[in-house]
Simulated scan of single mutants.
Amino acid sequence: MLKLIIGNKAYSSWSLRGWLAAKQSGLPFEEVVVSLYDAAWPERKAQPDLAPSAGKVPILWNGGTAVWESIAIIDHLDDLTGGTRFWPQDLAARGLARSMAAEMHAGFVALRRACPMNTRRIFDAVSPSSEVADNLARIAQLWAQARADYGGSGDFLFGAFGAADIMYAPVVSRIVSYQLPVPAHARAYVDAIMAHRWMQDWIAAAQEEDWVLDQYEAQPVAGD
């Protein structure tokens, strides 16, 4: 059986991606949750099951093979499931989906720093900084392009739920938690992601966690 090691469900955005990918695969997997950045973390991250990724989560174990980084986990699970569950089958749609996923993986740093994921909180709304607003505008543009060109009658970016939705799910969570302003078309997509049964399961599990990391609990201040 596959084993997926993830961090706190309240805070770990990359873990959410890996977990959604494991759920999307339809394959059975063992889930192991570790508490990030507590007093035991320096010792815990050096243990053999986390050492290959230098303590990064999520990390997926397939027998003796370790796979880390969310996109790598998605592609490994895509290989295991015959290339039918994650990326669009249409070549042009797949190219856009992969580009959007890669841009999410490497970009939107201002949004990620200003609004760390916290699935247990709804913060008071404040005006985002110009950098965060630029990130949100770019994200909304990408969502609109995918939905207009390939969304069809489905609720998600490329119609059916897939890899691109997995990569943007933590952004959706941030938009909700920080009450960030997005256009109406983006709000409809946010609502669809938040209503997905796996997102609901993840958020419910986060409410049951005892761990509190103060650096992710601070009320944000208004931007420039």
Rank of each mutant, 00 (worst) to 15 (best):
W211G: 14
K45E: 02
A146D: 14
A164R: 01
E69C: 02
A125F: 09
L91D: 11
H185K: 10
V126Y: 03
A72G: 13
M117K: 00
C115F: 13
A93L: 04
V126N: 03
Q200A: 11
A204W: 11
K23G: 03
R138D: 00
W61V: 08
R197S: 14
L20Q: 02
A222P: 10
H105I: 00
V33D: 05
A148E: 15
D165H: 09
E209R: 15
A22F: 00
A125I: 07
G82C: 04
V67L: 08
H185P: 01
A46Y: 04
N118H: 09
D149N: 11
S129F: 03
T84C: 12
A186G: 13
Q141M: 07
A125S: 13
L36C: 06
R174D: 02
G154C: 01
V33N: 08
D210S: 15
V126K: 08
A140Q: 04
P181A: 03
S25I: 04
R187C: 02
D38W: 11
G154D: 03
E30T: 06
A97W: 02
S35A: 14
W41P: 04
A46I: 09
Y178L: 05
G64M: 11
V67Y: 07
A192Q: 03
I5R: 14
A46D: 08
L80G: 00
A192R: 01
R147G: 09
D191P: 00
W41G: 06
P28C: 01
A97D: 02
I166W: 08
K45Q: 06
D124L: 11
E217T: 12
I122L: 10
Q145H: 13
L157C: 12
A114Y: 01
T81C: 05
Q89N: 12
A195D: 04
G223N: 00
A125E: 12
G107W: 11
F108K: 01
L2K: 06
I73A: 07
A51S: 08
V190D: 05
A205D: 09
K23M: 05
L20I: 02
K3M: 13
R44A: 14
V57A: 03
A186C: 14
L60W: 12
D165A: 01
V212I: 15
K56C: 04
Q215C: 12
A206D: 11
L96M: 08
V109K: 08
K45C: 03
A137I: 08
F123G: 10
L96V: 02
G18K: 10
A21H: 04
D75E: 15
K56V: 00
